[in-house]
């Protein structure tokens, strides 16, 4: 698989480490009343879809950036690659 890095251009996926579902970007509020339940869900439950999957790839052998990649789990086709920092900022985080 080739991942089209937003800064470095097309890179072999072997340079990256897969870090799982991109829902992991949204860590639950640790002060919420049901924080324990939320963290069990966050830590252990996954949507695991057959089809488009939004996921995190860490460019460990490259610039150490985290990417948010949309990839079809039935074909391995990659349709979108963004910097995770941009995605998080877009949600009003990492000021």
């Amino acid at each position: 698989m080739i991942i089209n890095h937003p800064i470095l251009g097309p890179r072999d996926s072997a340079e990256f480490t897969y870090m799982g579902d991109a829902a992991l970007l949204d860590r639950p509020d640790w002060q919420a009343k049901d924080a324990l339940l939320q963290f069990v869900d966050y830590g252990y439950l996954r949507d695991n879809p057959a089809g488009p999957h939004i996921e995190l790839w860490y460019h460990e052998q490259g610039d150490r950036s985290f990417l948010v990649v949309t990839r079809d789990t039935t074909t391995h086709e990659i349709s979108s690659v963004k910097l995770a920092s941009d995605v998080a900022r877009g949600r009003g985080r990492s000021k």
Binding site: Y44, L45, N48, A50, T73
Partner: peptide, 17 residues
């Protein structure tokens, strides 16, 4: 295919395929 099947029962599993 557990993820795919159990999604039909609206269940999320501690599993990735």
């Amino acid at each position: 295919s557990s993820g795919r099947l159990m999604a039909k029962a609206s269940m999320r599993l501690p599993i990735e395929s």
